Simulated scan of single mutants.
Amino acid sequence: MSSPDTQAPLNPLPPVVVALFLVILGVEATFFLGSRGLVGGPMAVGWRTAAIQDYGYNADVFRWMLQNNVWPLEHLQRFLTFPFIHGTFTHALFAGVMLLALGKFVGEVFAQWAVLALFLLSGIAGALIFTLFAGAQPWVIGAFPGVYGLIGGFTYLMWLKLGQMGEQQYRAFTLIGVLMGLQLVFGLLFGANSTWIAEVAGFGAGFILSIFLAPGGWRRIHQRIRRN
C-alpha cells in the first residue's frame, strides 16, 4: 500500500490529451499574438482567416474531390487539421476545457493511441456526415466533433458500467441529452448553424468506435460471435 503522503492529490492527465490541448492552445496563442501585432507583422492580423481557408474542412471542396476523383494532399489534410483551428478564443477555450475533462476520463481507461484515434476518427466521421447535409455554410472548424467523439467514448464506458451494475443503461446517454438540449436552447436564442450535425455524428462515431477501441473490445466481440 502506498502512503497517502506520496500520492498526487489529482490524477495526472493522459499525455495524449495534454498534447492535443497544447496544440490547440499553441495555435490560438499564435492567432492572438498575431492579431495584437506582437508577431508576424501587419499580415499576421489575418492569420486566423487564412488558417480557416487553408486548414478548415470545407464540404464543397470534398464534394469537388469526390466528383472529379482528385485527392490532393493539401485538401485531404483538412480532415486532420480542422480540429485545431477555431473561430474565436472563446470557441477554443470551451473546446479545450471539454477536451481535458472528457479526455481525462476516457484516457484513464483507453490506451493512449486509442484516445488519439477516437478523437481524430470521430472528427473525420463528423465532417463526412456533415457533408451530406451542409447547406450554405460549408465550413467545419474546431475540436468539438472530436470532443463529442470522446463523449461517445465516455457514454460507452458508462453504458458498460451500468450494465454490469444491473441498472438501466439508457442513463448513460444523459450527458449527450443535456448537451443537445443546450444546443437547442442556444440555437433558438442566438440562431443555429448546421455544424451541430458534425458534433452529433462525432458522438455516434465515438460510441461505435469505442466498442472496438476500449480494452477487451475485440474479445467481447469475438465472444458474442461465438455465442451466436
Rank of each mutant, 00 (worst) to 15 (best):
T81G: 03
Q164E: 15
F110R: 03
H86P: 03
L100G: 06
L38N: 01
L188C: 12
L76F: 05
T155V: 12
F79S: 11
M180H: 01
F144H: 07
V178H: 00
I211G: 11
R220N: 08
Q137E: 06
S3E: 07
F212T: 11
D5Y: 09
R227A: 15
T195N: 10
L80F: 06
G135E: 00
W159F: 14
G123D: 05
M98W: 09
G206V: 07
A198H: 08
V97E: 00
P138R: 04
A101S: 07
S210V: 13
W139I: 14
G142R: 01
Q223K: 14
I151V: 14
A19Y: 01
A95V: 03
R48T: 11
G126F: 06
I129A: 11
V39G: 08
W159Y: 13
I129D: 03
L25S: 11
G206I: 09
M180K: 05
P215R: 02
V109T: 14
G202T: 13
G103H: 01
S3W: 06
G217Q: 05
P215G: 10
L150Y: 04
L20I: 13
D5E: 10
V97M: 06
A44K: 07
G202Y: 02
L10H: 02
W71S: 15
T88F: 00
V185P: 05
N69A: 15
G40H: 01
G206K: 09
A136V: 04
A117L: 08
T49V: 13
E28V: 02
K104G: 14
G216H: 09
Q183W: 09
K161E: 12
F154L: 14
A125T: 15
Q183D: 11
W71L: 12
G206C: 08
A192N: 02
A92K: 00
N68I: 06
S122C: 05
T30V: 13
F82D: 04
S122P: 15
A172D: 01
F84T: 14
F186S: 14
N68Q: 06
E108G: 13
L116H: 03
L13M: 10
A134T: 11
L10V: 13
G177N: 10
V97R: 08
I221H: 00
A101I: 15
M43K: 05
I52H: 05
Y156M: 13
A143I: 01
V97P: 14
K104Q: 08
A111D: 04
G126I: 10
M158F: 06
N11Y: 02
R63Y: 01
V70Q: 08
T90V: 15
F62P: 13
L25F: 12
M65S: 07
P9Q: 03
H75M: 08
T195P: 09
P14N: 10
L120S: 03
F89D: 00
M158A: 11
S35V: 08
A29I: 14
T195A: 11
E199G: 10
V185F: 05
F203I: 08
F82L: 09
F82R: 12
G187R: 06
F154M: 14
A214T: 12
